[in-house]
Design a protein around this nucleic acid. Structure first.
Length: 729
DNA sequence: AAATAGCCGTA
DNA sequence: GTACGGCTATTTT
């Protein structure tokens, strides 16, 4: 049976300031304030154009009020309401509860208040308990309070109908808002209880000391934003646009392309005639109704005229006209390269893969790998130009134009970091994604637009070989541990090991730093192979793919892997142990207590089971490495707040700018650099995991390096001897 | 207007 | 091999 809340005494719209004051009283009595804003979803809390339409507040299960803030049906003055709400938010004896509290917190800050005291985010509690999406409130209500599944259906329709929350009539909006606050309170308390079960003692610290603290660091970071050199951005955008246009002209002039376009037109005309003939047939046989005989004749006549126009090649309407060849269209590229009789007629290299099953489809692929293969058979130079076009248009649309569209009047970008964004514990980034900004030489110009604010430099702290260090710690492999203890570069050491020259590590290192040495190129290659090998093994990559990446035969790849395992025997042992654990428990766990549940280990489908085994190895390594970065951001934030680390005098720029999985970016004024950097690297290398997560690294230490830059595109290794103030002149 | 497919950027 | 987000083209509603 589907229940529905009614507007009885439990839920109400507050219409007077007296009513708001009563809510304050209730929250103080129960010690809980669960709240949820409905807002105009546009610029977010950073922009001063958008406002909260309404807030729902619950203080005990089943009891909630809504207060209209900026709603046309309300006569309440928000200027009077906010100071009252502020008293609640800043009252340390009241537990603040929200679903995705980072979002609510940003709005609270926007109105000039802070949230003090204990803070409970049901969504993050749920995420720690179960990392698989969905994580949204509606889905959780459907799962745990199924009698109220779909409670938002009605208001959803109204939002669509009235085009925005702010236009939905107050009564249904208020009811919905109360339900949101109420369900948030109930589920949050429920999930927190589950986190506190003594049988999983690591959950609550992970929730409190990691997830909830990340909520703060990311909220501050998102509000602060990153600075953009808009002049520079506009310049490279224009440049790139020009290059794309020029390339496009050249591409379109290629003979085969002209021929293919002719074919497209004739083929299109053929199809138009076919379908018009089909229409005529439908009219004649009565499948398409006509009012009377006269109109029937007229309809047929019209279509026959159309056909003669088509035959003459006269295409006029938007549907009829054939656009120029579009090199961004995978469909057209398939025709051009493989299927069209007037195209290149290349042999199909491979097929695209189905997302669900990962099996090849019947559609030929035109991805980069395919193009590189075709390039050797192409004499027109088209393939190279297409590759160039792909690269440029990707850079242009994703990393230039979309940034231009998002940049604020004060030249900032406000991305969003999702704590619950991945199943492994890594945060994800969106709107825009600051974690996939191009870094290669061809596109390094992109990072040049990410500059520190005036008077500041960019400090990036990077964890080095985080995943392999974690793997060494988890597996306790003595050989891998030795590499890190000696401070070796793990990929070079691996290269030395698989060549059975480990004792000559220092010598090899010397060769690598001497470009004139006769063996320099050899060891460069070996180092690259070592790196490929390290990752391929950690993630159980197929032999074929490893061979491909290493540039060796499959047989050789298998031998390399064999040798690798001989060199690091305990890693293999750990991997089998992970497999055993996931079979036994259905989940695996990393050092911070973060779990990855892998029920697919019990699937009937072998592919699913194998995936679960790979995940059981990858997830703790990936998640745990990221946990170190995240933990560091939290500790550093604490130091900044206490004043034990100082990066800047600016209040505006005092938060972290970004994190990208194993690196963290800060803005810093030169006079603080030499005091702050050693402190930060010390904290990151030896984080106090004992205190907050009840474990200690037994065998390897984490390692961080620091880089400084006048932009994200020009980072240099930090040096204690450098006078960075000179960089600002 | 919303969903899917293909491709491609990052760690 | 693992983990993501986002753009463009294209189909579906």
């Amino acid at each position: 049976m589907k229940l529905k809340y009614t507007m009885d005494s439990n839920f109400a719209i507050v219409k007077t300031i007296k009513g708001v004051e009563r809510i304050l009283e209730y929250c103080r009595k129960t010690g809980y304030m669960s709240f949820d804003f409905e807002t105009k979803a546009k610029g977010g809390p950073q922009s001063d154009q958008d406002d909260c339409t309404i807030i729902g507040i619950a203080f005990q299960p089943g009891f909630a009020y809504s207060i209209p803030l900026y709603h046309k049906e309300s006569n309440l003055d928000p200027e009077e309401i906010f100071p009252l709400l502020g008293k609640l938010w800043e009252d340390t004896s009241i537990v603040k509860v929200a679903w995705n509290a980072k979002h609510e917190y940003k709005w609270v800050r926007r109105y000039g208040y802070d949230i003090r005291g204990v803070y409970l985010d049901g969504m993050l509690a749920k995420y720690v308990l179960d990392e698989e999406p969905p994580n949204d409130l509606k889905s959780m209500v459907a799962r745990f309070i199924p009698e109220f599944a779909g409670y938002d259906d009605e208001v959803d329709k109204l939002v669509k109908k009235h085009k925005g929350w702010e236009h939905v009539p107050l009564t249904p909006l208020s009811e919905y808002c109360c339900m949101d606050a109420d369900f948030t309170l109930r589920l949050s308390i429920f999930f927190e209880k589950l986190l506190l079960r003594p049988k999983n003692p690591k959950f609550y610290p992970l929730f409190r000391n990691m997830a909830m603290m990340q909520s703060r660091t990311f909220a501050e970071s998102e509000l602060m934003g990153v600075k953009i050199d808009v002049k520079y951005l506009n310049r490279i955008e224009q440049q790139t646009r020009g290059r794309i246009e020029k390339n496009l002209k050249k591409l379109l002039a290629i003979k085969v392309i002209r021929r293919y376009q002719e074919w497209r037109i004739t083929d299109h005309i053929r199809k138009l005639i076919e379908s018009t003939n089909a229409e005529i047939y439908a009219i004649k046989t009565g499948k398409k109704e006509a009012k009377n005989e006269a109109s029937k004749a007229r309809m047929i006549n019209q279509r026959e005229e159309k056909i003669s126009r088509y035959i003459a090649g006269e295409l006029v309407t938007k549907k009829e006209v054939v656009d120029e060849v579009n090199f961004n269209s995978p469909d057209q590229m398939v025709q051009l390269l493989f299927t069209s009789p007037k195209g290149f007629r290349f042999k199909i290299v491979k097929y695209t893969k189905d997302k669900e099953t990962k099996r090849p489809t019947t559609k030929p692929s035109t991805d980069e790998e395919v193009l590189l293969e075709l390039k050797t058979k192409d004499k027109t130079g088209f393939i190279q130009k297409l590759l160039d076009h792909r690269e440029l248009s990707k850079l242009h649309s994703t990393y230039m134009v979309s940034i231009q569209e998002r940049v604020t009047p004060d030249h900032k970008i406000h991305g969003e970091f999702k704590i619950h964004g991945t199943v492994t514990g890594r945060p994800s980034s969106a709107n825009p994604n600051l974690q996939n900004i191009p870094r290669t030489t061809t596109s390094s110009l992109i990072k040049g637009m990410y500059i520190p604010p005036p008077g500041h430099l960019l400090l990036e702290v990077d964890y080095g070989q985080a995943e392999l260090r974690v793997a060494a710690e988890l597996s306790k492999d003595p050989d891998m541990i030795e590499i890190f203890k000696k401070g070796y570069n793990v990929h070079v050491a691996t290269a030395a090991k698989i060549n059975r020259k480990f004792e000559k590590y220092e010598e090899i290192k010397g060769i690598l730093s001497d470009p004139k040495h006769p063996d320099h190129l050899f060891w460069e290659k070996q180092k690259k192979r070592g790196k490929v090998l390290n990752f391929s093994i950690l993630y159980l990559q197929s032999d074929e793919m490893t061979a491909d990446q290493m540039g060796v035969s499959v047989e050789e790849a298998i031998e390399f892997k064999q040798e690798w395992f001989n060199q690091f025997p305990l890693i293999k042992k750990w991997m089998s142990a992970q497999e055993r654990r996931v079979r036994k428990y259905g989940y695996v766990e990393g050092l911070f207590g973060r779990r990855r549940r892998l029920p697919d280990i019990y699937s009937d489908i072998k592919g699913f089971r194998n995936k679960a085994i790979r995940d059981s190895i990858n997830a703790p390594i990936q998640g745990c490495s990221s946990d170190f970065t995240q933990f560091s951001t939290v500790i550093i934030r604490d130091h900044i707040n206490r004043g034990t680390i100082k990066l800047t005098d600016s209040l505006q720029w005092r938060y972290q700018a970004y994190t990208v999985h194993d690196s963290i970016g800060y803005y810093v004024q030169p006079q603080f650099i030499h005091k702050a950097v050693p402190l930060i690297t010390e904290i990151c290398s030896n984080p106090d995991t004992q205190k907050y997560f009840n474990f200690e690294m037994q065998h390897v230490k984490m390692k961080v390096s620091a880089e400084m830059g006048k932009s994200w595109g020009s980072l240099e290794d930090y040096s204690y001897d450098k006078d960075y103030s000179l960089w600002l002149k």
